Simulated assay, not measured.
Amino acid sequence: MLKNELMKNGTQNFLMEYEQTNTGKNTISVIEGNAHDWFQKLEIIDFELLLYKSYLQDYYSGKMRCEKSTINSLLSYICRHIEQNKFHLRTCLYYKNRISKIRECDDMECEQIYMEAHSLFKKRLQDHFIKIKRLKHQIISKTLVYSELKID
């Protein structure tokens, strides 16, 4: 009951936000635009994570044992996030392709179904983006600790 109420309120808030920012645009075009933006962001994250992994692997080879332990745990954490990001990339691609098959709604009930699904998908991706942001901060802070580079 509570979950349904939260979902309903979350959807209503999302619909109100949608109506304020997207007047004049139809629901499907907004959803398509979001999916396109998310897919591009996920592709960039994929590239960045592979770059960080490669950098840390090279960086790892010249470090002392205590530093290697920290870097090794960070590398395994990066690898887990690479797999999660690949999952989100596949899911987002599927979602993008599915959107093109959505028909235009004639009533609010129909539109609300699409918006609820879109809102849920958006929430999952936002959570993923937050985790990636934290990971990037962790990578930077750990490499700064062990490097001679000083940033004020």
Rank of each mutant, 00 (worst) to 15 (best):
T27G: 10
K41C: 03
K101I: 13
I44H: 06
Q57Y: 15
Y60W: 14
D58Y: 12
E48Y: 01
I45W: 07
C110I: 05
Y55M: 14
G33Q: 04
T27A: 13
H36A: 04
S54T: 09
L89E: 06
D37C: 01
I71Y: 08
H81N: 07
D107K: 12
L50Y: 06
Y60Q: 03
L56D: 02
R80P: 00
L75I: 14
E48W: 01
W38G: 00
I28C: 07
D58L: 15
L75A: 08
N85C: 05
D107E: 06
S61E: 15
T91P: 00
S29T: 09
T70L: 12
D58A: 14
K68N: 01
E111R: 06
N97Q: 09
Y59F: 15
Y52A: 01
L89T: 02
I28Y: 12
E109F: 14
E83N: 02
I44P: 00
I45E: 06
Y59G: 05
V30K: 09
R65V: 08
L51R: 12
L75T: 04
T27D: 11
I44K: 06
L50Q: 04
L75Q: 05
V30H: 05
E43C: 07
K86I: 07
Q40T: 02
L74C: 11
L74S: 06
E43F: 07
I78E: 01
E43G: 10
K96I: 11
D46I: 01
N34P: 00
L75V: 12
S69F: 12
I44E: 05
L42C: 03
K68I: 03
C92E: 05
Y95F: 14
G33N: 05
H88S: 02
S61I: 13
C92F: 02
I44S: 06
G62Q: 11
L49G: 02
Y95L: 05
Y95T: 05
S100R: 13
L56Q: 10
L51Y: 07
D58F: 12
C110Y: 11
Y59V: 07
I99P: 00
A35S: 08
E67L: 03
E104H: 10
E43Q: 14
L49N: 03
N72I: 09
